[in-house]
Amino acid sequence: MKEYAVYKGDEFLCLGTAIECADKLGVKADTIVYYTSPAYQRKLAKRNAVNPIIVIKLEDE
């Protein structure tokens, strides 16, 4: 299973599967996956958001 690391700005929020992270943040698992997409990255770049939620997909070893 893929794991994700979730940050808000520089603050670490959680680590786990999309479902685990979604439960912790109170969002859908699809939202966690969306946060890793190029579309979300473009949206952040346009907005110049302060302390945005950043999700990093961790590679399987």
Rank of each mutant, 00 (worst) to 15 (best):
A5G: 08
D60E: 15
K43F: 04
A45L: 09
I54A: 05
D23S: 13
N48M: 15
I54D: 04
K8D: 08
P38L: 14
K28Y: 12
L15P: 00
T31E: 09
L58V: 14
R47D: 10
L15K: 06
K46I: 06
K8R: 13
I54E: 04
K24Q: 11
E20D: 12
N51E: 14
C14P: 01
T17F: 07
N51H: 10
L58E: 15
Y34W: 08
D60F: 14
C14M: 09
K46F: 06
C21F: 02
L13P: 01
R47L: 14
Y34G: 02
Y7G: 00
G9Q: 01
K2M: 12
R47A: 15
Y40A: 03
D30S: 13
C14R: 08
Y35H: 08
A29E: 07
L25F: 03
E61N: 14
Y4R: 02
I54K: 04
T36P: 03
S37N: 07
V50G: 09
R47K: 13
D30E: 14
A22Q: 01
Y4F: 10
P52K: 01
D10M: 11
I56K: 14
R42N: 05
V6F: 04
G26W: 05
T17L: 04
L15H: 08
T17H: 05
T17Q: 05
V6G: 01
R42T: 08
K57N: 12
K8F: 10
G16I: 00
Y40H: 09
I53L: 05
E3W: 05
N48P: 14
Q41D: 11
V27T: 09
L25N: 00
E61Y: 14
E11K: 12
F12M: 06
T36Y: 01
Y4G: 02
L44S: 03
P52D: 04
A49I: 12
A49H: 12
T17N: 03
G26A: 04
L58R: 15
P52R: 00
R42P: 01
Y40R: 07
R42Q: 12
N48K: 15
F12A: 10
A18D: 05
E59Q: 15
A18M: 08
K43T: 06
Q41N: 12
Y35A: 05
Q41L: 09
P38D: 14
A39D: 15
M1Y: 10
K2V: 11
E59M: 12
G26M: 03
